[in-house]
């Protein structure tokens, strides 16, 4: 009944029982795979393609971390989670990190004991309505039926917004984005609300995207970012600085095209520090010198990942907006590499 018996039983059943180890980094290295929690499918952010390969903006973060730690962007086990299961999966150690459109909130950070390692997408909750309704502002939505995708902070924001504006509404909670779209398109609800990025992504797939408008009100702040368990600071640092490396790479003009060239050394000391030709930042993280170079090498810097998965050239068609570099007036800002 104690561990020995129990582990014996586990072996019998043919399962690998994770050995108790000091930190997540050692676990990941020992396992040779990074377990990364993602959504069950949000176009552009995380979805398996027709060949079953996970693609998307959040997925790119997982791959970058895997490349930094394990030198192999494919050494990721993507664990699909729902809104309900994501936190337990992370808390119980089933996954090493969660990159799943998760809003950084006080209670999640403090009460649920997680550590957000940064923000990879600044989002906000928006509303989409059919153009024919002639609605121009969310404050005109008195009495409307609103489709909400459950399992996020969306319900709470919605309740707060309508309460603050003293208007009534009828919430229709829906489990998956696809079913929300189905109801919205059939006219079973007047308004569809979720994160503005997802609205744009889903509108792009409509039969006639121009027949729908996204209202100007953004009713919430939704900083989405990867998170890890509380208390393992070494691992949190790795995830945090991998994300920062992607951001810094864009700021410094390091792209997947010139990465090899700059990796040989350049005039800019910060680029050198980032790519490991100067100093040894990697050793401080418990990694080797070229960790950031590998992370950037997977799919390029933050801007390239953005453009490839959700940018204006993709069907999702999101503008950088708040997610532009701070030098371009956005909020994407990385602490310096020194």
């Amino acid at each position: 009944m104690k561990k020995s018996v129990f582990l014996g039983a586990l072996t019998v059943a043919g399962i690998a029982a994770g050995a108790a180890a000091a930190g997540t980094l050692d676990d990941v290295k020992a396992r040779g795979k990074l377990n990364c929690g993602v959504t069950t499918g949000v176009p552009g952010f995380a979805e398996p393609d027709a060949n079953g390969v996970w693609q998307g903006f959040d997925v790119a973060v997982c791959r970058a971390v895997a490349a930094a730690v394990l030198s192999d962007p494919e050494a990721v086990e993507f664990v699909p989670t729902t809104g309900k299961t994501r936190f337990t999966a992370l808390a119980s150690g089933e996954i090493d990190m969660l990159a799943r459109n998760t809003t950084w909130t006080f209670s999640r950070d403090v009460d649920l004991k997680f550590e957000f390692t940064g923000v990879n997408y600044y989002d906000g909750q928006g509303f989409m309505v059919p153009k024919e309704l002639g609605v121009t502002s969310a404050k005109e939505l008195d009495g409307a039926t609103v489709c909400i995708q459950t399992g996020t902070t969306t319900e709470l924001n919605l309740a707060d917004f309508f309460r603050a504006n003293n208007i009534s509404y009828e919430p229709v909670p829906i489990e998956t984005g696809a079913e929300a779209v189905q109801q919205y398109n059939a006219g079973a609800c007047d308004v569809y609300t979720t994160d503005a990025s997802a609205l744009a992504a889903q509108r792009a797939n409509f039969e006639d995207p121009s027949a729908h408008v996204i209202l100007p009100e953004i009713v919430s702040k939704e900083p989405l970012g990867p998170l890890v368990r509380h208390g393992d600071n070494e691992w949190a640092d790795i995830v945090r600085w991998t994300l920062n490396a992607l951001v810094t790479a864009e700021e410094l003009g390091v792209t997947s095209v010139n990465l090899a060239e700059l990796g040989g050394g350049s005039d800019n000391p910060e680029v050198n520090r980032l790519l490991g030709t100067e100093g040894d930042l990697g050793a401080m993280l418990g990694l080797d010198k070229e960790w950031a170079k590998r992370a950037i090498g997977v799919a390029g810097n933050y801007g390239e990942v953005f453009e490839k998965n959700i940018g204006e050239s993709t069907p999702i068609g999101l503008a950088r907006g708040l997610n532009a570099q701070w030098t371009d007036g956005g909020l994407i800002y990385s602490p310096p590499f020194r």
Binding site: E155, L156, A159, D160, F162, Y169, E170, P171, V172, P173
Partner: peptide, 8 residues
């Protein structure tokens, strides 16, 4: 504690 969400 307050639930914070609406039920139809």
């Amino acid at each position: 504690e307050p639930a914070g969400y609406d039920i139809n």
